[in-house]
């Protein structure tokens, strides 16, 4: 499959009076056409900032310092704001974290969707209104014609999120970024939203970047995923490979720190906490929490292949796999 989105050495800093907060540090990501790609990590690991950088929504004092974002042949990092407006919202769409606060409380949801259609698709209000109802039906909202006339406060959290997904799909984007789309929703609703996203991705051929901190969701719905820690991508690859043989100590630790419904486990919390991103440790930012840390970890680890579809950025893992092969 071809790469739809490729970021290389993507680095985002936020300027403060004490120096830059290095929120994303050299992130390399590849998202292929039509796949569901997961982005996992603790709070403050830079998942959302990475997504915002891809959409070029980083506001000052934040800045993309370095790196490229190649999307379907164009480099978004250097695109003019004017040209970016044709990409953002139409070819790359965002499903935000809190659907209720992202909807306009004083405009009916149908109208909000049809606005997106008329701005990006150039349809008249009558045609875009009809299309909005079609989209609501597509995302599984019952009685869409009636729902389209309602306001955000009249809808449940799950339905609000479906409306946001309908809005994101209004322009048939090639890439959909879903930033923790199920936070605050009950398990049964959450699993249906994730299923809906997957299903819509398949039907429309759109690739999906799914940002989450839940490894269960990743295992059940992503084709490939990347693990982020303190602004660095530590490991990425095929979901099966990563769960079967996690190579980075952080991925290992994450998997051991969650209670599971399918097995009896002994919980082992991850040592320490995510380091501050203002003057973070040089090199690998996991070194102070890592049991395998070596002196060399003060240098930045290269991305090395563990297998065809599995990369890791870790000196200890590199040594282990070099010895094995």
């Amino acid at each position: 499959m071809t790469a739809l989105l490729e970021t290389e050495a993507l680095t985002v800093h936020f300027a403060t009076s004490d120096g830059p907060v290095e929120a994303v540090d050299g992130a390399d990501l590849t998202v292929r056409t039509g796949e569901v790609f997961g982005l996992v990590g603790e709070s403050g690991s830079g998942k959302s900032v990475t997504a915002m950088a891809i959409m070029r929504l980083i506001q000052p004092p934040g800045r993309i310092v370095k790196g490229s974002i190649r999307f379907a042949g164009i480099d978004l990092a250097t695109l003019s704001e004017k040209a970016m407006r044709d990409v953002r919202g139409s070819r790359i769409a965002l499903v935000p974290q809190s659907p209720r606060t992202s909807l306009n409380p004083v405009m009916s949801v149908g109208k909000q969707i049809s606005r997106v259609i008329s701005v990006h698709g150039g349809l008249g209000w009558r045609a875009s209104g009809a299309r909005a109802i079609e989209l609501l039906a597509m995302v599984g909202v019952p009685d869409p014609a009636h729902r389209a006339k309602q306001y955000a406060h009249q809808l449940s959290g799950g339905t609000c999120q479906r409306v946001m997904i309908a809005m994101a799909l209004a322009t048939s984007p090639q890439l959909l970024i879903a930033d923790e789309p199920t936070t605050g929703l009950d398990v049964s609703i959450a699993s249906r939203i994730i299923e809906l996203l997957r299903d819509l991705g398949k039907r429309t051929g759109a690739a999906i970047i799914l940002i989450t901190h839940d490894l269960g969701t990743v295992a059940q719905s992503c084709d490939r995923f990347a693990v982020m820690h303190a602004g660095q991508i530590v490991e990425s690859g095929d979901t099966r490979c990563l769960f079967r043989a996690p190579a980075h100590p952080y991925t290992h630790a994450l998997l051991r720190s969650i209670p599971r419904v399918d097995a009896d486990v002994v919980l082992q919390p991850i040592a320490g906490s995510v380091p501050a991103l203002l003057h973070p440790p040089a090199g690998c930012r996991y070194q102070r929490r890592c049991e395998l840390a070596m002196p060399v970890c003060c240098e930045k680890p290269r991305r090395t292949s563990v297998s065809v579809s599995h990369d890791v950025a870790c000196f200890a893992a590199e040594k282990k796999y070099a010895a094995a092969s």
């Binding site: 398990v187 699993s191 839940d214 269960g216 969701t217 295992a219 599971r260 399918d262």
Partner: peptide
């Protein structure tokens, strides 16, 4: 059954059999 089957299992090879409830 519906509630437990909706919990995502952190194992990509797990056979998940959803027990779906209709509506909200």
């Amino acid at each position: 059954r519906a509630l437990l089957s909706a919990v995502p299992v952190p194992d990509p090879d797990a056979a998940t059999e959803r027990f779906p409830l209709s509506g909200e």
